[in-house]
Amino acid sequence: MNRFMAWTAIILGCIYFILPMTGMVEFSLSMRRGVYSLDAYRVVLADPVFQATFSYSVIMALFTIAFGVLLVVPTAYWVQLKMPEIRPVVEFITLLPLVIPAIVVVFGYIRLYNTSSWLPLTGSVTGTNILLMFGYATLALPYMYRAVDTGLRSIDVATLTEAAQSLGAGWLRIMATLILPNVLGAVLSGAFLTFAIVIGEFTMAALLDRPAFGPYMQLLGANRAYEPAALAVIAFAITWACMGLIHMVSRLSKHKRVSH
């Protein structure tokens, strides 16, 4: 009986996920009447706007990840090491982006950093890009911080730090050779989430008027039929590739017990 219920649950779950997916894939292949073809994909991939917006978003994602790692890893490390009592406060702050809508954040940015403000970031393309990256980093903060904090808690940060210090190491070396490698798995999963968020983000990019992938998808979805489906399948493929990569990396880190 139990077995039967379990199988039912699994099958229902599969239907829930797989049916829409197959539908979408099927639709994305149906651009040419009567036969399956990759025409929709060909059109999308050949579109110079796709190429431009996609590369823009990938680059923005990489910068956001780098910025997020440099911001979050030392912060989480320092909080754990020196000020464990303020952890709840920091956790609360990192959760704020989940309750403050992106549109509020971006309007705040525009008000604070407009061309007549003390720091006119929106006045130049680079400035706006930087602002957008900050915005992305804020959106990714809850996931990044949580992942890294959990990773740090799985090692004895305080004692490892002291051991390294007694061997003569300074902060930079401790961060680079001990802390970062030991939370690499956590950092990677944070990075993957950041990547996914940045690639799909619409509000901030649109309001700051940057040529990102999110607004492009929206535009395409509003005006075409088959191409958006192809785009969605591509986005899925990227996501899954990321997951596969993370899984591989975590298996390759030799110093961890491999769980079978």
Binding site: E162, A163, A164, S166, L167, G170, N182, H255
Partner: peptide, 30 residues
């Protein structure tokens, strides 16, 4: 002086080996 300037060796109850380094790399760290 900070501890990394004192030239002392420290052994902890919890071993505190660096988990991402091999035994030889641990010994070579300092």
């Amino acid at each position: 002086l900070r501890s990394n300037q004192r030239n002392i060796g420290m052994v902890f109850q919890a071993y505190a080996l660096f988990p991402n380094l091999t035994v030889a790399q641990n010994v070579a760290f300092g």
